[in-house]
Computed example of a mutant assay.
Amino acid sequence: MTIDYKEIFSQNNVGKVLYNEPMANHTTFKIGGPCDVMILPKEENEIINALNIIKKNNLEYMIIGNGSNLLVRDKGIRKVIIKLNDNYSNIEIKDNYVIAQAGALLSKTAKTAMKEDLTGMEFASGIPGGIGGAITMNAGAYGGEMKDILYKVKALNRDLEIVEYNLDEMNMRYRNSRVQDEGLIVLEATFKLKKGNPEEIKALYDDLTFKRTSKQPLEYASAGSTFKRPEGHFAGKLIDDCGLRGYRYKDAQVSEKHCGFVINRGNADFEQVYHVISHVQEVVKEKFGVNLEPEIRIIGEE
């Protein structure tokens, strides 16, 4: 049965609506076929309105942010995509607290904190993606994690009720949280930081930025670290020790700069990237007996 999305979403206060929109335009991998509908709300009530319409019409949907951890199949997605990115990205400072909407980029939020002489969020300055995704998966880098600075989260539950949870209630753990456990939708996060020395904060910020730019293949499209860290190992080292540094299939490649990244050299499609990921998993399993689990989410119509 064909769904008339234009009829369903016309004349409704949900924000901007795009139809048959290529997901390649909305992921940092620059890969992915079209989604049926993409909604870009700017207000909290628009998010709730969109979800109510989705629920009323029994439509499948998905929330995305910056698309920095997504690998979308070439056939695209047969769902309604609600994108919370620069359309929903306000950042506010109140004393030592940073309040950021779900679509705000982590890098911009960390930079805003730095400008206010607030310390504690420097580790997040180089993490790709937005606040919503970072809370969902307890993102971390350089010895820090979201749970180290999180104060509270404002979210929607499955009944579309606005709920608030403090850090202790969020069950934050390695690349997971209450958000995933209960299917919550993050609207806003509040972080508790400390006043610091401006020169020391900037020095740490600059140092971590240099480490990231010098060690990560930022000149290519990717979804950041492709694999989760296996217990007792480092994914990048395992891949390197298997002789897979620079392993390439057409336009998809294991980065020569950082073996933990699979990159799009320009025109890679889903199948090419998936081939590289699968080959890496197979070789690492065969040589070391370690199962590499993707940190990226693989989605879309098969």
Score class of each variant (00 low, 15 high):
Arg178Asn: 12
Arg178Ile: 15
Gln180Lys: 15
Gln180Ile: 15
Gln180His: 01
Asp181Gly: 04
Gly183Ser: 06
Gly183Trp: 05
Leu184Lys: 03
Ile185Leu: 07
Ile185Cys: 04
Ile185Glu: 04
Ile185Trp: 03
Ile185His: 02
Val186His: 07
Val186Trp: 03
Glu188Asp: 02
Glu188Val: 02
Glu188Asn: 08
Ala189Cys: 11
Thr190Leu: 00
Leu193Asp: 10
Leu193Ser: 05
Lys194Leu: 11
Lys194Val: 12
Lys195Ser: 12
Lys195Ile: 00
Pro198His: 00
Pro198Thr: 03
Glu199Arg: 05
Glu199Thr: 10
Glu200Ile: 05
Ile201Tyr: 07
Ile201Val: 09
Ile201Phe: 06
Ala203Val: 00
Ala203Asn: 13
Leu204Met: 08
Tyr205Met: 11
Tyr205Trp: 11
Asp206Ser: 04
Asp207Ala: 10
Asp207Phe: 11
Leu208Arg: 13
Leu208Phe: 08
Leu208Glu: 01
Thr209Trp: 12
Thr209Asn: 11
Phe210Gly: 00
Phe210Glu: 14
Lys211His: 10
Lys211Thr: 00
Thr213Val: 03
Thr213Ile: 04
Thr213Met: 09
Thr213Ala: 00
Ser214Glu: 13
Ser214Val: 05
Ser214Asp: 13
Lys215Glu: 14
Lys215Arg: 14
Leu218Gly: 10
Leu218Trp: 14
Glu219Asn: 11
Glu219Gln: 15
Ala221Phe: 14
Ala221Cys: 13
Ala221Asp: 12
Ser222Val: 09
Ala223Lys: 02
Ala223Asn: 03
Thr226Pro: 02
Thr226Gln: 02
Phe227Asp: 02
Lys228Ser: 04
Lys228Tyr: 04
Arg229Cys: 10
Arg229Asp: 10
Pro230Thr: 10
Pro230His: 08
Pro230Cys: 11
Pro230Phe: 08
His233Tyr: 15
Ala235Gln: 08
Gly236Asp: 08
Gly236Arg: 05
Lys237Gln: 14
Lys237Cys: 00
Ile239Cys: 10
Asp241Lys: 07
Gly243Cys: 00
Gly243Glu: 00
Leu244Gln: 05
Leu244Arg: 01
Leu244Gly: 06
Leu244Ile: 06
Gly246Ser: 10
Arg248Glu: 14
Lys250His: 12
Asp251Tyr: 12
Asp251Ile: 01
Asp251Glu: 15
Asp251Asn: 15
Gln253Asn: 02
Gln253Pro: 00
Gln253Ser: 15
Val254Leu: 08
Val254Pro: 07
Ser255Cys: 12
Ser255Lys: 10
Glu256Leu: 13
Lys257Phe: 09
Lys257Ile: 15
Lys257Gln: 15
Lys257Asp: 08
His258Leu: 04
His258Cys: 01
His258Trp: 04
Gly260Arg: 01
Gly260Val: 01
Gly260Ala: 14
Val262Met: 09
Ile263Arg: 04
Ile263His: 06
